[in-house]
Amino acid sequence: MRVKDQYFLKKQNQSLVLEYIIRNGPISRAEIAKHMAMSPTSASRIVASLQDEQLIKEVYLETDEVGRKATYFMANEHSVIFVGVEIDVGVVRIGLMNLIGEFITVRSFHTKTDHYEDVVEFIGQMINDLISEQQIGKDRIAGVCIGLPGLIDNEKGTVEFSAQFNWRNVPLKQILEQKLDLEVFIDNELKLKALAEYVSASLPYKNVVMLGFGTGVGSALITDGEIYRGANNMSGEIGHMTLDPYGAYCPCGNFGCLQTYIAIDFLLDEASKTRPMDSMEELAAAYKSKEKWAVNILDKAATYAGLAIKNVVCAFNPDAVYLSGSLIEEHPEIAELVIEKHSNSTWFPESYSYDLHVTQVKEMGVVKGAALSVQRKLIKSLNFKGGA
């Protein structure tokens, strides 16, 4: 075997062992060797290397044998910290997560998101303040991941286009790395939220789709635990599928996109043709009061949302579909209407092929997914030099 192949196999085994210890610790060397199908010598060598990195620690547990304590290993949970951030319309959420996936602290801040320079300045200051407040050295921060809506080049860390903020070609990674002096990753918020949902799911699903209905419309696919991205990280952008080329103008530059029938701003514009309408809470209240015009608007939007679910299921054939976004999470009556419309549109083979849920990770899903994505990068690379 070539040296390069040997090195790759060693790093892969290290990653698998670390992930197994995080999920199952405390655990013995013998149990690690058995589960990983490797020799006791190899297991001991990998465990020693992870101890050198200070990513795991020894613990001693009582055994059935009198007077004997066995050596076990578990994740050194505070050896490394992951920072997850969500930028949403009017709000920024930030969370610090430890190695075993527990949040140390989570904060939400109301902010203006019109100018990315202001957002970058604000995020940089808040992250530095939280790190200082928690007395965490920057050498323990493995990285920062920012999730936001839009077309994101996750390799370059560039916001290609975000209709919600009207940002184009913003080099967010570059700017934030200069501000924070930390490694920064940028990704689509729904992809990160789907990852958090997949990790948190109570059932062992293989393929999970999340759909988001709120300030925009999108979908994300997790398959075998990995985010499916497509060629340019554009997988799942169903909000910009054209339904009617002669329809309403969409900020993406096209007409009649799916989101122009469902997204909040378009619903409020439609409602304002009847009476001035400033928030979804007002429109939802009119719907609950059975005002005919409001019922017609949300009934039509729910019909399109239901069809979007059906089309995504037909395309991906997932084990489970999760519905998310402010329309779903903040307005249960709209969620029920969407599920009802979808149920009426399904065909027999499809209706029994998957489970349909409303998101469980809710408003902290993007922050959790962002932090988890950095955790996964660390586990896969194992090039972190830190400590606690």
Rank of each mutant, 00 (worst) to 15 (best):
L382Q: 12
K57A: 09
E282N: 12
A308I: 00
L327G: 09
R107P: 04
E340R: 15
S108M: 01
G101H: 08
A271N: 01
T260W: 02
G25Q: 10
G101P: 04
G25V: 12
N296D: 11
G230H: 04
I21H: 03
L130G: 00
L195G: 01
A301F: 00
A33T: 03
C250E: 06
G124R: 13
Q360E: 06
V120T: 15
I297Q: 12
L378A: 08
Y72S: 02
R93L: 04
E270K: 15
S44H: 05
G147V: 04
G230L: 02
Y322P: 01
E350W: 00
H115Q: 14
M126Y: 01
D181R: 00
K206M: 08
E329D: 07
A294Q: 15
A75H: 04
E270L: 06
T274Y: 03
V374K: 03
C257V: 04
I32L: 07
A320N: 05
Y205M: 10
A335C: 11
V209F: 06
N98Y: 13
Q135T: 02
T105Y: 00
P245A: 12
H35S: 11
K69Y: 15
L327T: 04
V120P: 07
E237K: 02
I238D: 04
M74Y: 08
G157I: 15
T215C: 09
D244P: 08
P26H: 04
Y116N: 11
N154T: 02
T215N: 14
R275P: 02
Y249K: 09
G90T: 13
E189M: 02
C250A: 12
A305C: 11
E330S: 09
G225V: 10
H240T: 06
V106Y: 02
H78Y: 08
G230N: 03
Y246A: 06
E86Q: 10
M97W: 13
V17I: 15
A305W: 07
G387I: 01
S200E: 11
A201K: 07
K57M: 12
D244L: 05
D52I: 08
C250T: 03
D129V: 00
I339S: 03
I21R: 09
A315H: 05
V217F: 09
Q174L: 03
S326K: 14
K368T: 11
L378S: 03
A231D: 14
V321G: 06
S345H: 15
H240V: 06
L96E: 08
M241R: 11
I146N: 07
I27R: 10
D355C: 08
N128K: 06
E336P: 06
G67N: 10
